[in-house]
Amino acid sequence: MFKRLHENGAKKVRIFVDGAPTEVPAGETVAAALLAGDDVHCRTSSVSGEKRAPHCLIGVCFECLVEVDGQPNRQACMTRVADGMKVRRQQGAGGGAA
C-alpha cells in the first residue's frame, strides 16, 4: 500500500511475516514494514473477527497489535524490526496464554 521513496544506502534486516521472509530497512517499525506490503491487515478483531490494520502510528489506537516472536498484542507501530524477527498477523485475542 506504501512504497519507500528510495532504498539505497539503508542497512537491511530480514524479518518473517507469517513465515514469509522480507527485507526491510533497519530502524523501520513493524507497522511500516507491514504497510509497505500489499495486504496491510495486521490482525482480526477479538470481538467480531473483522480485519484491522494500523491506524494512528503513534501508539494510541492499539489497532496494530501483532504477534512478535511468539508474544501476542505487541504494538507494531512502537516495535522496531530486528534481524530474524518473526511477525504474525494476530487472530482474535492471540493465543499466548493457552
Partner: peptide, 8 residues
C-alpha cells in the same frame, strides 16, 4: 484487568 487472551 488484562487484555483479552485465548481461553485458558
Amino acid at each position: 484487568i488484562t487484555e483479552r487472551t485465548a481461553p485458558f
